[in-house]
């Protein structure tokens, strides 16, 4: 049996909000260590890897491994009915045909209970070896989100160029072009505002702006985003959860 109680529904609300526009169907794998998901978008360009460790829950138990096949849009409809500050408990039997979600108001005696039908989902599972990266950028997630949104107004591609101590986001469109350069920066008082660039080899990669604009839906989850890049390889965008992560692997674009 699975029983996982979040102190606040807001964490799962944000996670589902970040995923629902990229993937429609997901298997949520529940083990004693927590809940994990690997899901790939229909175009096979973006892969989502989610880990909500048991430590993210107020209380967590899962006696046997359980797979919850969930339709994200339906899950999102139910999740939106709960308040962000509600306690949220996920409950499933050992061989479940439904996931129960219980929202409890902390101040009043209000309990809302929902049941979501499960689905059998046959999904490709990709084997992601330990990847080596030539560059790692840590930056404020809100700043990254603004850059992705701004650059998408110009072109459907976004080029990321990293040299020693700066990252250049470059967009070449039909009616014009634009770029934003950010440099390494340490804010000792507000560390979440800092930009850190760790570079082994310079990087010049191009990505689909559409996918980046799906990834930045994770911005409310974490004040910083970590971007890991390697020449001619998929990039990794990571948002840390209190205990766990939401990662996106994005395949690059290449010259025709």
């Amino acid at each position: 049996m699975l029983e996982g109680k979040f102190d606040e529904a807001s964490l799962l609300k944000k996670v589902i909000d970040a995923m629902k526009d990229s993937v429609k169907l997901c298997n949520f794998n529940c083990t004693e260590n927590g809940i994990s998901v690997q899901a790939i978008d229909d175009s096979r360009v973006l892969l989502i890897s989610l880990l909500i460790e048991a430590g993210s829950f107020e209380d967590y138990r899962c006696d046997r491994n359980i797979v919850l096949g969930l339709e994200m849009e339906s899950l999102n409809k139910i999740i939106k009915n709960g308040n962000a500050s509600d306690m949220l408990t996920l409950v499933a039997e050992d061989s479940p045909d439904a996931l129960n979600l219980i929202f409890e108001d902390k101040r009043r005696d209000r309990i809302a209970e929902y049941s979501l039908k499960l689905m059998d989902i046959d999904q490709d599972f990709l084997k992601i070896e330990d990847m080596k990266f030539d560059a790692v950028v840590n930056m404020p997630s809100a700043e990254f989100a603004k850059i992705c949104r701004d650059m998408k107004t110009l072109s459907e591609s976004l080029q990321i160029i990293i040299t020693k101590d700066s990252v250049k986001f470059n967009s070449e469109g039909d009616f014009g072009s634009g770029s934003v350069v950010i440099k390494s920066f340490t804010d000792l008082e507000k560390t979440e505002e800092s930009v850190r660039i760790t570079l082994e080899k310079p990087i010049n990669l191009t990505f689909g702006a559409k996918y980046l604009n799906d990834i930045i839906k994770s911005t409310p989850l974490a004040s910083q985003v970590t971007i890991k890049l390697c020449d001619k390889q998929p990039a990794l965008f990571e948002y840390q959860l209190p205990s766990g992560y939401l990662r996106f692997y994005l395949a690059p674009k290449f010259e025709d």
Partner: peptide, 14 residues
């Protein structure tokens, strides 16, 4: 503006 690559060409299926 460039050819979109596919994740299946980088990662194998399990």
């Amino acid at each position: 503006s460039g050819q979109q690559s596919n994740l299946l060409s980088f990662f194998g299926k399990k």
